[in-house]
Amino acid sequence: MKSEARKKQNKTFIRDIIILLISLSVAVVLISFFPQKRPRFMEVSWNFLIEMIAILPAVMILMGLFVVFVPKDEIVKHLGKTSGLKGVSLALFFGALPTGPLYVAFPLAGMLIKKGARISNIIIFLSAWACIKIPQEMMELQFLGFKFMAARLVLTIIFVIIMGRISEALMEWTEKRT
């Protein structure tokens, strides 16, 4: 099981390297056709590289820490039984913890459904997981500034809660009809 996951990871890594080589060669060809554009290209790429390197290791360390220190069954245990305002806050909180990409959360959500957790909380949990993860907010702060980050964060929290309620109502409504 584990070796299979690793194999898949190696495959995506090789694919990424190939895409990188292709885009680098495209860049080299284009720049050699338009040599006057070279300084601009170097400056833009260099600035973004520096900005990334300044923050990426810190973000990765934080993600690594949470992956190891917050066991996934703990999340299911807590979310499965809470409801009300506490349920909503817990769903937002666990979703925001930096513990991997969205497809890691689907099996967790599946387990939560089986455990009888509220649909609205599962939707809130998934959306928070997708959209308001702590490392993402850090990158957003770094690249888009505080105002943009804060505005999107607050709006997303509000609408994700509304979305959870709408989904739940629609799911229950369609169930009653069949």
Binding site: T12, S23, V26, F48, M52, G64, L65
Partner: peptide, 30 residues
């Protein structure tokens, strides 16, 4: 163990980081 995970995910994401940087460079130049 967490640091190991961090180093591994850093190197996993690195090629994509470089791809994005090249693409941003090209887009803003051309």
């Amino acid at each position: 163990q967490a640091l190991k995970v961090a180093v591994q995910s850093f190197f996993n994401i690195l090629p994509t980081v470089l791809i994005i940087i090249v693409l941003i460079g090209l887009m803003l130049t051309f």
